[in-house]
Simulated assay, not measured.
Amino acid sequence: MPFSDRRSATLKTPHLVLDSIFAFPPNRDILGGTAYFIVENAANFLIDCPAWNEPNEQFLRERGGVSVLFITHRGGIGKAREIQEALGCKIVIQEQEAYLLPGLEVATFESELTLSSSCQGIWTPGHSPGSACLYSKAAGGVLFSGRHLLPNQQGEPIPLRMSKTFHWRRQLRSVQILMERFNFETFRYICPGANTGFLRGKGVIDQAYDRLVQLDLNAQLQAKPVL
């Protein structure tokens, strides 16, 4: 059976969160994470793996398929093998985590990778050694942050120290680098890879750069891990 779940009649469908950007329902294969789909004229991008079932495959095919599956961290791999076999897409992952995809056609990068005229992969280590974000120029600048930046209970973007965080200081440094790289005109939204329930139906974190610059990263150093 090629799909992980055949209960298509009861499955939720992807929903539009920004122009040409869709969010999939949380996927238990990636610990309740949220995958995203960017529809572009030249190429379509899937960020992390949605639940692999017939409705999701049909949804992707009806919109031109997937050119690139971008994995933000090792926890976002899910059914990457099945997705590549079905859709023939290229898998992109930061080089330190490519070993987790043996036997697959994988493109790796070290610090940055240009994926299209509007999309770029950026290495943001800390949550995991190969944690990475995908940045899109769409809608004034959107960062698909994986688990590098997540909304807290108030819907504010924060780096979240978890019990399995690879390197907390490095993660905070990665946040600082993002703030130095972008500004309020180029970084409007965050599409987080988890905790989307805290967004209370908004789908995205808006005013992303303005919210991030208000973070006290020095204070974050003392944050205790959460489960």
Score class of each variant (00 low, 15 high):
Phe3Trp: 07
Phe3Pro: 00
Asp5Cys: 05
Asp5Tyr: 07
Arg6Asn: 14
Ala9Asn: 13
Lys12Ile: 03
Leu16Glu: 13
Leu18Pro: 01
Ile21Val: 14
Phe22Cys: 01
Pro26Asp: 01
Asp29Cys: 11
Asp29Arg: 11
Asp29Leu: 11
Gly32Leu: 02
Gly33Trp: 04
Glu40Phe: 08
Asn41Trp: 12
Asp48Ile: 01
Trp52Asp: 00
Asn53Phe: 05
Glu62Trp: 03
Val68Asp: 06
His73Gln: 10
His73Lys: 09
Gly75Gln: 05
Lys79Ser: 09
Lys90Pro: 05
Leu100Phe: 15
Leu104Val: 08
Ser111Gly: 10
Cys119Pro: 00
Ile122Tyr: 05
His127Cys: 08
Ser131Asn: 15
Ala139Gln: 10
Gly140His: 03
Leu143Thr: 07
Gln153Glu: 15
Gln153Asp: 15
Ile158Ser: 08
His167Ser: 14
Arg169His: 15
Arg169Thr: 14
Arg170Pro: 05
Arg170Gln: 15
Gln176Met: 10
Phe182Lys: 01
Phe182Asn: 04
Asn183Asp: 15
Thr186Asp: 02
Gly193Cys: 06
Ala194Ser: 13
Thr196Val: 14
Phe198Cys: 07
Val204Thr: 07
Ile205Ala: 06
Ala208Leu: 02
Tyr209Gln: 07
Val213Leu: 10
Gln214Pro: 02
Asp216Ile: 07
Leu221Trp: 10
Gln222Met: 13
Pro225Tyr: 12
Val226Trp: 10
